[in-house]
């Protein structure tokens, strides 16, 4: 069990969340050539250590979050909404 501090809901069990994937992937534009999409969809680093990844608070606020998590220790360094606008609104609301 790991605990993820959702910026909206507070610290919650990971069972409330769904793992998305590597948040560092830049998905190409829809009209990008297949080779570019191939890299984005299939090529992963399998990081040992700190990794930015997306998690969906499916049984909570339904936000997609970017979680910096150490894949070795599960240490969570930061959590922010994946949507830049929402992240900014949250920041301003503080």
């Amino acid at each position: 069990m790991i605990r993820i501090p959702c910026p909206f809901c507070g610290e919650r069990d990971h069972s409330e969340f769904t793992y998305g994937g590597d948040a560092s992937i830049e998905y190409p534009p829809l009209d990008a050539p297949p080779e570019q999409w191939l890299r984005a969809v299939f090529e992963r680093e399998n990081v040992r250590g700190m990794q930015a990844e997306t998690w969906h608070h499916a049984n909570g606020c339904r936000l997609w979050l970017v979680v910096e998590r150490d894949t070795l220790t599960h240490e969570i360094r930061s959590v922010r909404p994946a949507h830049a606008g929402i992240a900014q609104a949250l920041e301003e609301g503080r």
């Binding site: 769904t18 998305g20 997306t54 997609w64 994946a82 949507h83 606008g85």
Partner: peptide, 13 residues
Amino acid sequence: MVWLEELLQTRWP
């Protein structure tokens, strides 16, 4: 539903 949310929040904000 999850997929649409992901697209809107992570790819096409």
